[in-house]
Design a protein around this nucleic acid. Structure first.
Lengths: 171, 171
DNA sequence: CTCTGTGCAAACACTTTGCATCTCA
DNA sequence: TGAGATGCAAAGTGTTTGCACAGAG
């Protein structure tokens, strides 16, 4: 769906090195494959699927097995340099957390799959307030808004509604 | 994980009939299986997995194939009488939308899987405001806060953190 | 009586795992 | 050199689909 060209303009080497440091801290080898995968992830500001990553690697001449990609993504997520998302497409997407808003929410187009990031400090307030009310200790949260992006609307996509004809109250 | 006893105190027959009406509107047969499945879903205020539903049916003496359960849940979701959730457990959960806050958010315990529902009108404000800013036409949203519930905290569960030792800024 | 649902099992898509081999440290 | 990674293919998930038979309208 998204072929995501190498779209980053900031140098990514330092980020890859940061991952290398994490690996060394954990006593794990810094392999070529792990670096190549990290380069792809840090080199794109998109929300990449495993297939996106595999394709990008292939384009660059690297042939790395899916298993290795999954295993490396697991390490990247553990290191907290990368965040994992599930937008309900049946597979996961990955997004690096460097040089961008560390905490942000998503607008997701259910037509074309594009994702817009936005920041809202109100969310943090809600999170604290509600957690407090229930004695809950929050760690992470997600706010996702699904709908149609501007271009899909302009392309004539209509919101579909298919429920009961006499709707129940949907305050 | 959750064996969810028949916990509802409101009569569920009217809700099942509402589903029957939807089916008839769509020209689809109102079968025993569909009614039995609807009864289970409307009869519980929990967030049920397909296995939960299958087990509950089995306890009541009904033997309905998983395929039928999936197909019926699809109809229930389409009718908008039931909402589908993915709390990142690797499978979906289903929750009926009758006799409860039609729009609400979730606190999810990552330890025991329990779910607390809460309502926040600020979310709607954020949704409208942000959508407006991006020319986005929103349909649905989700706000989920993950963490540890009160009882798991009291049971001594500690939040774990395993990232880089020198963390990046996490404003 | 016809159209659709049902149940089973096979198919599916994404992800994980086992194992022989190779690589970093 | 040895712990650990890699790649392939096989196994595992939850979910969907194909098809012969059964049931609702």
């Amino acid at each position: 769906m998204s072929l995501s060209p190498p779209s980053s303009s900031v140098p990514i080497a330092p980020f890859v090195r940061l991952f290398g440091r994490y690996l060394r801290e954990q006593g794990l080898p810094v392999t070529q494959q792990r670096q190549a995968i990290a380069e792809v992830v840090f080199g794109s500001d998109d929300h990449l699927s495993v297939d996106d990553i595999e394709n990008q690697l292939r384009q660059e001449g690297d042939r790395i097995g899916k298993a290795t990609i999954y295993r490396t993504l697991d390490l990247l997520v553990r290191s907290q340099l990368v965040a994992e998302h599930d937008f309900g497409e049946g597979f996961k997407r990955y997004e690096h957390r460097l040089s961008r808003q560390p905490e942000h929410e998503h607008l997701i187009c259910t037509e074309c799959g594009s994702v817009i990031e936005f920041k809202s400090h109100e969310v943090r307030a809600i999170k604290d307030q509600v957690s407090n009310a229930y004695g809950f200790r929050p760690s992470r949260h997600k706010l996702e808004i699904y709908g149609h992006c501007k271009s899909c609307q302009e392309a004539g996509v209509e919101p579909s509604d298919d429920g009961l004809t006499c709707p129940i109250e949907t305050v």
